[in-house]
Design a protein around this nucleic acid. Structure first.
Lengths: 135, 135
DNA sequence: AATGTAGGTTAAAGTTACTTTAAGTTACAT
DNA sequence: ATGTAACTTAAAGTAACTTTAACCTACATT
């Protein structure tokens, strides 16, 4: 299957502008063009985008993703390096999840803080309590 | 306790430049200055920064965080609104965690993909297998 | 045949959240 | 008196897009 940039945008949830930007940055090498210069995305391009989105979600910068894309072009020689990259990304995601779980606890405290303040009618209910500072 | 910008940077893990930027954006109102114009951060400022970092980690943009800071200045009138904000942020964090858990599964698949390719000596081991596209 | 509209194209400027640089001040130790 | 460490501001640079402007091309409609 082949898709126009608009169809590829709809299928991936990435805007057409961003797809053009990704191509310019070397994340999408070999995107075909028709006689009028119009891009034609294939299923492999969409799968590539799925992996790009995945790497991006782990906090990987575009330039590093580009390096990974370049490694892919090297074929079997870069298998080890690519494997190591994904192991590293797995660790990064796990760290991010742990971070967010800590953040959620702080938010839970704030929810409790406001709930009790609302019940009391004033934030002053927390004033002076050891270490609780109103901001 | 009072801290210079450098000490505040060290205590919060936020660079001095970023602290100046936050002040300029209205995230840190009423930062004291000495006769030479040098900033002096107090514990309440540091606590404020902790909450700012927390909101930022949930994906909240600076301008929205600024609106929250402005709400704080309104006192008890804005308790409900601030409570609603944190409930909303809690939902946002939970969504992000779920997102990352899905991302981790994709990464796990890729780890398996490369592991088996390395064992086989070539990525071709996955060729043609239903839906597995090498990128 | 002309005209509208729904796509596509490029290059360049704008945005967000910083970071870096440049140029200068002030306090303190050698 | 000279160095250096920490502060100051304003402005330029960066990443990852997004938006805008100006243009092309195909196709349906008046």
């Amino acid at each position: 299957m082949e898709y126009s940039i608009g169809e590829a945008a709809e299928k991936t949830g990435i805007t057409a502008s961003t797809l053009r930007y990704y191509e310019k940055e070397g994340l999408l090498p070999n995107i075909k063009r028709d006689k009028n210069g119009i891009r034609s995305f294939c299923d492999e391009d969409l799968e590539r985008l799925r992996i790009i989105e995945c790497l991006k979600a782990t906090g990987m910068p575009i330039k590093d993703i580009r390096k990974f894309i370049d490694l892919c072009a090297d074929g079997d020689d870069s298998l080890q390096e690519r494997y190591a990259l994904f192991l590293d990304r797995k660790a990064a995601v796990q760290k991010q999840i742990e971070e967010l779980q800590k953040i959620e606890k702080v938010i839970d405290f704030k929810c409790w803080y406001y709930q009790t303040a609302i019940e009391a009618g004033t934030e002053k209910v927390h004033a002076g309590k050891n270490k609780i500072i109103a901001i």
